[in-house]
């Protein structure tokens, strides 16, 4: 019953971005449709985070255009940008939890900013989100400084999901998690994608995640997307870096074992 005639979730055209000293993203184009889960891969330092930050408007772009949920953030008014903000959730690489608020307050924060409701509603939804990401309500009153790395990631995800966004950006959600937790995280993203019909833009290095969650993978190399498609397309790619990434020793063993089972 969801409206279908929608603009793409993300539409990037000819984007150039970077810093005074060096251009990191070089004439990159990428379109993500609604409901897709796309995984972005690239070497460390290849500019994945820079691309994400430019998409979110945290880093000024040098040229090109970016539309997020049909809104051009560079030319949007404050009101429009705020409206888009309520429809996107972002999970930063380091969590970026507010250190002076406890876990529950962190998750409640976007709700309090954007929604009209009572304290009880916000508290219960926050606790529900916390349980959705696999944490206990006993952790709700802890402060970010008291959390482990994996817990921080989960709380950051819960906060990104606080407003039931249409689009969610994840920067290396499973890095630094043990394989079991990472697997649970993958299952969680899949379930959320189903229940909330999320569009997910995920930066990840985790081949398991790519294989089990992402219907589509894009590879970033020297500032451009050099390969874009399903895992099969990736493996069939001629590009030496993509070859090394997906058909290297680690890639191969994981992928073949997954195909066997």
């Amino acid at each position: 019953m969801r409206a279908v005639s929608l603009s793409p979730a993300i539409c990037i055209q000819d984007l150039v971005s970077g810093f005074e000293t060096d251009i990191v993203i070089d004439h990159l184009s990428l379109t993500v449709q609604r409901g897709e889960i796309i995984g972005l891969v690239g070497a460390s330092g290849s500019g994945k985070t820079v691309l994400l930050r430019t998409m979110l408007g945290l880093l000024p772009k040098m040229s090109g255009s970016i539309e997020v949920l049909g809104e051009n953030l560079a030319s949007a008014s404050r009101e429009e940008a705020r409206a888009v903000g309520a429809r996107c959730g972002t999970m930063f690489q380091q969590g970026a939890l507010f250190s002076s608020l406890n876990v529950r307050e962190n998750i409640e924060y976007p709700m309090r900013e954007y929604l009209d409701g009572s304290d009880r509603l916000f508290r219960e939804i926050a606790l529900a989100k916390l349980q959705m990401v696999g944490l206990d309500s006993a952790d709700a009153e802890k402060f970010p400084a008291e959390l482990s790395g994996g817990m921080t990631k989960r709380v950051a995800l819960a906060r990104a999901l606080a407003l039931d966004p249409e689009l969610i950006f994840l920067d290396e959600p499973t890095s630094g998690l043990d394989p079991i937790a990472a697997g649970a995280f993958d299952a969680l993203i899949r379930a959320l994608h189903q229940t909330l019909n999320l569009t997910v833009f995920m930066i990840t290095h985790d081949l398991n995640t790519l294989n089990s969650v992402c219907k589509r993978v894009a590879a970033l190399y020297e500032g451009r997307i050099i390969a874009d498609g399903s895992m099969a397309t990736m493996q069939a790619s001629e590009h030496p870096w993509v070859q090394a990434y997906f058909c290297g020793e680690r890639g191969h063993s994981i992928l073949s074992s997954l195909q066997d089972s």
């Binding site: 529900a128 349980q131 709700a140 189903q194």
Partner: peptide, 19 residues
């Protein structure tokens, strides 16, 4: 509806009692 089942089930699982 099929697309709503999961979120309802999830909420049902969640204990809504606040500490």
């Amino acid at each position: 509806a099929r697309q709503n089942a999961a979120v309802l089930a999830q909420m049902h699982k969640t204990a809504l009692r606040p500490p």
